[in-house]
Simulated scan of single mutants.
Amino acid sequence: MMDEDQLDRIRRLPKVELHLHHEGAAPPAFIKGLAQEKSVNLDGVFTPDGSYAFRDFVHFLSVYEAATSVLKTPEDYARLTKAVLEESAANDVVYSETFLSPDFCGGGDVGAWREYLHAIIEAANEAERDSGIILRGIVTCIRHFGPEKAKAAALCAAETAGDWITGFGIAGDEMKGKPKDFAYSFDMAREAGLRLTAHAGEWGGAQSVAASIRDLRVERIGHGVHAINDLALVDEIIESGITLEVCPGSNVTLGVYPSLAKHPIEHLRDRGVKVTVSTDDPPFFHTTMRDEYLNLARTFGWDEEVFGDINETAAKAAFCDEDTRDRVLKRLERT
């Protein structure tokens, strides 16, 4: 049993987060205020206490897209970026990677996407000056929007690849289509020098992880937790050095696992998988990075050394340049 001093030290550790959806991190009050400003009706999006309202994963996706509908201009995204990074910094996050979809930021048009991206980067730079938090972007296509829209997202990613847009991935409903349907988009992103990740193994079983590794040639997997059901695949993940972006609170809230005690993150880590910890869509799942750490500490007895290892793993798997990585690792140094 950990005492309160130990838990407080864990709560305040500097943290690296690799799996955060930009719109999904929007505080409900921010979205509600923006809707009022724009006279947008968001009936059904919020519970009476002001939280996001959803029944299951598919309903969550529809609520997510409804909430995102009020974000209509680059300035809206600048304000969103500021709100998201204030919350992350308050949870001692020193480096974060956020998933951004050109489908939401300009409808997949490269010119419009550039305007949105400029506003987001300006806000991120301001947050870095104010609080020291570093943000980088991963362009994400939406699986249930289909392969053709994914190609438009990949083109946006390729045209803006560089020091800030450093990766490409896929999110959305894992049950729609197959990873190989999106291979063209991933090839385009790879040729532009972008690093690759993919959501898999949250709902699609271990086979979705195997297919994403085989057909999309990714170096990270978002979630990936159902890989535990195929130990040969787990061994392949270890041998390939693939990192899992695990979001325990999200998995429990959505019912992927009935409780944190039943979650496989401990088993994956014990076998030698590179696991990291993230929040996914924190206000939707009533979590923060501090909450994730405290819940893991209480459930599995993880101490500061374990979390230090996890953060170093995340920093080394981050899609950033080496100078940025060195800066982040310095902030993680243990005394």
Results as ranks from 00 to 15, higher is better:
1 M>C: 04
2 M>S: 04
4 E>T: 10
6 Q>S: 09
9 R>W: 11
11 R>Y: 01
12 R>S: 08
14 P>F: 13
15 K>E: 06
15 K>V: 02
17 E>M: 08
20 L>G: 01
21 H>Y: 03
26 A>L: 02
27 P>S: 09
30 F>W: 02
30 F>S: 14
31 I>Q: 02
33 G>N: 07
35 A>F: 06
35 A>Y: 02
38 K>F: 00
38 K>D: 00
40 V>T: 12
44 G>A: 10
45 V>L: 06
51 S>F: 10
51 S>L: 14
53 A>L: 07
54 F>T: 03
54 F>N: 03
56 D>P: 08
57 F>V: 06
60 F>H: 05
61 L>C: 13
63 V>I: 13
64 Y>P: 11
66 A>H: 02
67 A>L: 07
67 A>W: 01
70 V>N: 03
70 V>L: 05
73 T>S: 15
75 E>C: 10
76 D>I: 00
77 Y>R: 07
83 A>L: 00
86 E>W: 01
94 V>S: 02
96 S>C: 14
98 T>K: 11
103 D>P: 12
106 G>E: 12
106 G>R: 07
107 G>S: 14
108 G>Y: 11
108 G>W: 12
110 V>T: 15
111 G>W: 04
111 G>A: 09
112 A>N: 07
114 R>P: 09
115 E>N: 11
115 E>W: 07
116 Y>Q: 07
118 H>P: 11
121 I>S: 08
124 A>V: 08
127 A>Y: 01
127 A>T: 01
129 R>N: 13
133 I>P: 13
134 I>M: 08
135 L>I: 05
136 R>C: 05
136 R>L: 04
136 R>F: 08
137 G>D: 07
140 T>H: 12
143 R>N: 08
144 H>G: 05
145 F>N: 10
145 F>C: 09
153 A>K: 06
154 A>Y: 11
155 L>T: 13
156 C>Y: 09
160 T>M: 03
161 A>K: 04
161 A>G: 09
164 W>K: 10
166 T>H: 09
166 T>Y: 10
168 F>K: 11
168 F>A: 13
172 G>S: 13
175 M>Y: 15
182 F>Q: 00
182 F>K: 00
186 F>M: 03
187 D>F: 14
189 A>T: 08
190 R>T: 11
195 R>N: 02
196 L>P: 05
198 A>R: 00
206 A>L: 01
211 A>W: 15
213 I>L: 01
217 R>E: 11
218 V>C: 00
219 E>H: 00
219 E>Q: 01
219 E>C: 00
221 I>G: 00
221 I>C: 01
224 G>E: 00
229 N>Y: 07
230 D>G: 06
236 E>A: 10
237 I>T: 04
238 I>L: 05
242 I>R: 00
243 T>W: 01
244 L>D: 01
245 E>I: 04
248 P>V: 05
248 P>R: 05
249 G>Q: 01
256 V>I: 06
268 L>W: 06
270 D>S: 14
271 R>E: 06
271 R>T: 05
275 V>G: 01
276 T>F: 14
276 T>P: 11
277 V>H: 00
280 D>A: 04
285 F>V: 10
286 H>S: 13
286 H>W: 09
290 R>V: 10
291 D>Y: 12
296 L>N: 03
297 A>D: 05
302 W>L: 12
307 F>N: 02
307 F>S: 00
307 F>P: 03
309 D>T: 11
315 A>P: 15
315 A>W: 15
316 K>N: 13
320 C>F: 11
330 K>L: 15
334 R>Y: 14
